[in-house]
Design a protein around this nucleic acid. Structure first.
Lengths: 235, 235
DNA sequence: TCCCTTCTTTGCGCTAGCACAAAGAATAAA
DNA sequence: TTTATTCTTTGTGCTAGCGCAAAGAAGGGA
């Protein structure tokens, strides 16, 4: 947790949030950022905490979860490097609606909420970029909402795996490894089902040669067949 | 479809999107707006149309729906007066991801997308307001996502009715009338179930004195009991 | 090395809710 | 008024997926 030293403007330049902002301006923006590090499984903040920081992930993965009133947990999304998160709370001045957990070693930049608001007034492009990020995110949620409202569990799991693969997939010679530790429970919380059903589904897929799965790990052997499962409307 | 005559700045002033913007600036912003009228059941735009206008609803109700690949429809939300919609597409430069239908007689203001972008640069507060609107909307979607992922159909229907009541409820002496035409199919498309299940559920609730329902119409007789259904974790 | 914890698999019974069918009710059209 | 259309209800059968239990399997720590 140290003020950024040196000149990290170039680091910001490659991030969506800061696109179309001059390096000169980025320098000034960067001056207001703080850098944080978290270890695997460490909490960045909890649902209900007062929201004071606007975060951009630099390295690692962050998991955003929400707890229901009766104690069930769901996974809203995984954050990848370059993505902003906790945008919501800073702007609506309410507590964090989600819990953020470091999935692995994480490093992030953050801005104090008032400061970020000032910066947005000063550099409207910053607000506009945030807007288009949120717009995309709403779309994703709309899609997932439709998915969960209309589609069967098997297909939802297929979709979730494909999504994860595109975010954190590592190409191996025999398939695509989803490169985070991912329990059956995690997959269930992403797709609105139970760990039992996920386990059964993966077992079946393993028999069919679609995936290969170990403890907390899934490798997609046949992305093509998985896509068919996820999208073929004739099924 | 006519350029706004007169001085509608005061009309904008009461809208969230334009909060904290001076009347003087609102005048200028209003100059760029166009006003449109639509009749009941008329389409404002279709999913897939190129997105060129940023809209704010003035009077009436608008329904936003999405069609799945296999032709199922879902209702994403109802827009109430004062709310902005089609924000997404303008910023992400993609086709409208939803279809917008006038639920009743509708009047709205709209801005051409490029113009709105210019205005946001000129009046950053406009972008910041949009941000906080989108932020709230994301939260709503997250909540509904969690709801549909973790809760039973009966509770989801209860929630949907309560939400509708708070948006478009009209207080009567014997209850709250949901003041739009609302089929069983509509309720099903909002909650991710079938019209049959909705019909059965309403029938049961009618027996229990919770609601009274006619064709395309629902009146909540006991909001309290409905809240219990929607929220009581011991059930 | 052994123990303990966490994760996974699988069997089994059950039920919420879907799907289809068919009839009834309300509204619109002719 | 009659007819056509749209919406709603209800019966019936069925199955996807849940929930519980219990037994492996894989790490991790002492």
């Amino acid at each position: 947790m140290a003020i950024l030293a040196g000149n990290p403007a170039h680091l910001l330049a490659s991030i969506d949030l800061f696109s179309q902002i001059s390096l000169h301006d980025l320098d000034k923006i960067a001056l207001n950022a703080t850098q944080h590090e978290y270890k695997k499984n460490e909490y960045l903040f909890h649902q209900g905490d007062p929201a004071r920081r606007f975060c951009v992930l630099v390295t690692g993965k962050v998991k955003l979860t929400q707890l229901t009133e009766d104690g069930q947990q769901i996974i809203l999304r995984y954050v990848s490097p370059g993505e902003a998160f906790a945008v919501i709370a800073v702007l609506s001045k309410i507590p964090y609606p989600v819990t953020a957990t470091a999935v692995n070693q994480v490093s992030l930049l953050s801005w104090e909420d008032q400061k970020m608001l000032e910066l947005m007034h000063q550099y409207p492009q910053l607000a506009i970029n945030s807007l288009s990020i949120l717009a995309t995110r709403i779309q994703e949620f709309q899609d997932r909402f439709r998915e969960i409202a209309t589609e069967r569990v098997e297909r939802r799991i297929a979709r979730a795996l494909l999504r994860l693969a595109s975010q954190t997939g590592r190409k191996l010679e025999h398939g695509i490894l989803i490169d985070i530790s991912l329990t059956r429970q995690d997959l269930a919380e992403m797709t609105g089902t139970t760990l039992y059903t996920v386990s059964r589904t993966l077992s079946q897929w393993e028999k069919d040669g679609l995936v290969s799965s170990q403890r907390e790990q899934v490798t997609i052997l046949s992305p093509h067949k998985l896509v068919v499962l996820a999208e073929d409307m004739s099924r």
